[in-house]
Design a binder for these strands. Structure first.
Length: 472
DNA sequence: TAGCTCGTTGGACAA
DNA sequence: TTTGTCCAACGAGCT
């Protein structure tokens, strides 16, 4: 404990002790450290977290608090606008500085710039660091000096840039003589009132320890087979680190240094995709709502609330799509291969605006991340960076057969279809009536007929793209 | 500068 | 059942 004027470490999306530049710098200052989290229901300049993310945040904050207690400190929780909460806290505690790790979402950058100014105006030092990306978006550009818009050149470029050696976890914190009481975690009401998140508890361990465990499990097992297994949703072939990365319980930097550059290249490419998404959002600030390719403003989206609802609830009549949407609802996560199939279906088969799909993912994913979500949806819709060509329309039947050939994944999430043989699992409407009856499937009863015909929907999508092209 | 090559994840159809 | 070919648009990035 110390009487000296403290340095506040403002935790945000960096809910970890290891490889945390703001925390390390605060410790290096030799002053007592005051760890703070401010909960702003309105969001931090961006849209408020969805329900699944809130569930995660609750547990992640609890975990960080626990870790800080192990170092003789604790996490002080505040509520309200971050600016006023921090300014007031500095006054109350006589703090001489506030340190934090940057976020790069445009709205957050804008808000943080204001906060920095207010703190400096009060005579408080405000310093920010890069803890969440391997490279600052401002430091990466192509030979013309503009941001990369195609992944492959971006990937080639960043592989040769140096990255910070991960910073060690501190063994102790000097704390101020007294810590403000702050709010209780429960008062933030982040957990759902209804118990819909029960399934989440079985799937996830939020917090830095959970992240470390997920990484070591993946490094020992899945990483070596990643290239082969990552497209098989029934197998734990992916790292499942995305929510940990989103909340900063682990840094991309730690992953980059923990894995072998050559052996694990296919996986590290994915870490680079995350980086790419964040850089894109930083440079193209309107992309959460506006297409990166301006000609897509003329795309003839339709709006059909009934179809949107059917998609959201896993009732489209296409089993692989519905399986994915139900996995999402029950666990807050969906396998990447299935995300592509399900999102392509919404955008291309149902011609619903990609923004509606992005909004649903934002609400239901535990790894909902503005940069990744935006890039992913724009890629699927064909209106983003390095996007899929418009004529590339995933066939939900053959995608199911190809990537879930034995039906393990689909049967897990679609119990009403579990007794169908593989031959008809992805197209139950083609099964003979007697077989359906034997399997207990009543089309239009306990499982819907397809809401659109694949062939017709495909043609309608191609026509819609042609219409947009002709409108130019 | 002008021209060339290439683009995470595909589908349909014919042979 | 498998394999090959076309679909076909356009801008980024490089030389």
């Amino acid at each position: 404990m110390s009487d000296a004027s403290p340095v506040i470490v403002w935790f945000r999306r960096d809910l970890r002790l290891a490889d945390n530049p703001a925390l390390s710098e605060a410790l290096a200052s030799g002053e007592p450290v005051l760890p703070v989290y401010v909960f702003d229901e309105e969001g931090e300049g961006d849209s408020p977290d969805g329900a699944a993310s809130k569930w995660w945040l609750h547990h992640s904050l609890a975990s960080l608090d626990e870790s800080l207690k192990g170092l003789g400190s604790r996490l002080v929780l505040l509520r309200g606008s971050s600016k006023s909460a921090l300014v007031e806290l500095c006054r109350e505690m006589g703090a001489r500085a506030v340190f934090w790790n940057r976020r790069y979402e445009p709205a957050v950058v804008e808000r943080d710039t204001e906060i920095k100014k207010s703190l400096v105006d009060c005579g408080v030092q405000a310093r920010s660091f890069n803890g969440s990306l391997m490279q600052s978006p401002l430091s990466v550009a192509n030979k013309s000096g503009t941001p990369f818009k195609v992944f492959t050149p971006f990937w080639k470029h960043i592989q040769n840039l140096s990255t910070r050696t991960p910073l060690a976890k501190p063994d102790a914190l000097t704390t101020p003589k007294s810590l403000p009481k702050g709010e209780s975690l429960e008062s933030f009401e982040l957990l759902p009132r209804l118990s819909w998140a029960d399934g989440f508890n079985e799937e996830w361990i939020p917090g830095e320890k959970g992240a470390e465990k997920a990484l070591s499990l993946f490094a020992k097992g899945g990483a070596a087979k990643y290239a082969k297994d990552r497209d098989t949703p029934s197998v734990r072939g992916v790292s499942r680190l995305s929510p940990h990365l989103h909340f900063g319980e682990i840094s991309p930097n730690q992953i980059w240094h923990a894995l072998d550059r050559k052996k694990h290249e296919p996986y590290l490419r994915q870490i680079a995709w995350r980086e790419f998404a964040h850089h894109l959002l930083f440079h193209f600030k309107d992309t959460p709502s506006e297409p990166l390719r301006p000609e897509f403003a003329a795309f003839p989206w339709t709006r059909n609330p009934g179809w949107l609802k059917a998609w959201q609830t896993g009732q489209t009549g296409y089993p692989i799509v519905d399986a994915g949407m139900r996995e999402l609802w029950q666990t807050g996560w969906m396998h990447n291969r299935v995300r592509m199939i399900a999102s392509s279906f919404l955008v291309k088969h149902l011609l619903q605006p990609w923004q509606d799909g992005a909004a649903w993912f934002w609400d239901t994913l535990v790894d909902a991340d503005l940069a990744n979500n935006t890039m992913g949806w724009q890629w699927v819709a064909g209106c983003g960076a390095d996007a899929a060509p418009y004529f590339r329309i995933f066939n939900p039947i053959t995608q199911g057969e190809r990537f879930d050939g034995d039906g393990t994944y689909t049967r897990r999430w679609m119990p009403e279809l579990a007794r169908l043989p593989n031959k008809y699992l992805f197209k139950p409407w083609e099964a003979p009536a007697a077989l359906l009856e034997k399997a207990g499937v009543d089309l239009g009863g306990n499982y819907p007929m397809p809401i659109v015909d694949h062939g017709k929907a495909r043609k309608a999508a191609l026509d819609a793209y042609a219409e947009m092209r002709d409108a130019r």
